[in-house]
Design a protein around this nucleic acid. Structure first.
Lengths: 181, 181
DNA sequence: GATCTATATGCAATAAGTTGCATATAGATC
DNA sequence: GATCTATATGCAACTTATTGCATATAGATC
């Protein structure tokens, strides 16, 4: 249920609409948590039912009215409880790992192509995150509070992409060596 | 839908029952793909309906009959198609990254405790995977076919755990430094 | 004698996430 | 004039995954 918590966290600083949240998830938060707008709207209704967020309608002409949400006291308490409860580590779930196991049935060349694509993707994302890091957090030692947390998660993202870059390269090297021999 | 493919891959080498698969997922395959027995049984029925696997009943007394499955020609073709199609990179989905964003609302000490637990967990898993690696693949350069694929995925697992070990330590260090100042 | 573990299957309910569709308008580009 | 993009919300159907329950027996441990 971490989507609910990601939303609550985002709403702490500012009132946001579902649409705003969806954009936010595409940008900063979304570096490490994906959600479609449908899912966000659904989750917001559920959070409102549980009184963890409060809704407020802002009327607009020419555009549909905005419904902005803010965190309630109960929502804050809920967030704190969640942070104290044991977090369960995420399982891996990377298709390429399953594909590796299928090597032998599947041509090595196919796998190598997949690896190279994955590599390019991770490389692009890592560079994007690093640019963000350099821009937003030039002096990590001075950070505190919210900013420190955001920095740490960004670091996690960078490391995550680094992992796939290194691993796909290791795989390509070994597959290549195999091909030659 | 990679669960279906993970199952197909596992069934290529040997006929297995749902129960066997569940154990397999707890052991080798499961190092990088989790599935409960309920999910596996359900997926097997679906695969059988699509004729990608064939079922065979082995009668037993004293215990429930076993239903063992093997991959059909169509199943193999399906696996190969899947391997050729672009694999989508898995999003991160690690609760601790969301928790980082909640820093400031949530005490730094709580976060540090979570980080240390995550660290211990990753450390344990990495060591287990490394023992497996040393035992099963003492000479990586000589590997080919299925074995090479299994080695590569194991390497991915090791790197994955390494990532969380390093990251949680970076986080603890920074949180600690913050506390002192 | 009672509980625990392993074997072996599965249903039902719920939660989480994806895909496709629907509506409605302003402003910018082709 | 026609299409595209951005704004803003949401329903419906479906797939994927989790949680809890149910059944049934052999053998081992307490």
């Amino acid at each position: 249920m971490a989507l609910a918590h990601a939303i609550l966290t985002a709403l702490v600083d500012e009132e946001l609409s579902g649409y705003d949240l969806a954009k936010r998830f595409d940008a900063s938060l979304g570096h490490f948590w994906k959600a479609s707008h449908q899912q966000i709207y659904k989750e917001l209704s559920k959070l409102e039912q549980r009184a963890l967020v409060a809704a407020r309608v802002i009327e607009q002409q020419a555009r549909p009215d905005r419904i902005v949400y803010s965190v309630t006291e109960a929502g804050l308490a809920h967030l704190r409880d969640w942070a104290g409860a044991p977090a369960k580590p995420a399982p891996v779930k990377e298709d390429l790992l399953v594909m590796c196991h299928a090597l032998g049935l599947v041509p090595a060349e196919t796998l190598r192509t997949q690896m190279m694509k994955r590599n390019a993707y991770a490389r692009e994302r890592m560079e994007m995150l690093q640019r963000l890091e350099a821009k937003l957090f030039p002096d990590p030692a001075a950070l505190k509070g919210r900013a420190l947390g955001q920095y740490l998660s960004l670091r996690g993202g960078v490391r995550y992409e680094r992992l796939w870059i290194d691993w796909t390269e290791e795989c390509c090297a070994l597959l290549e060596a195999r091909r030659k021999s």
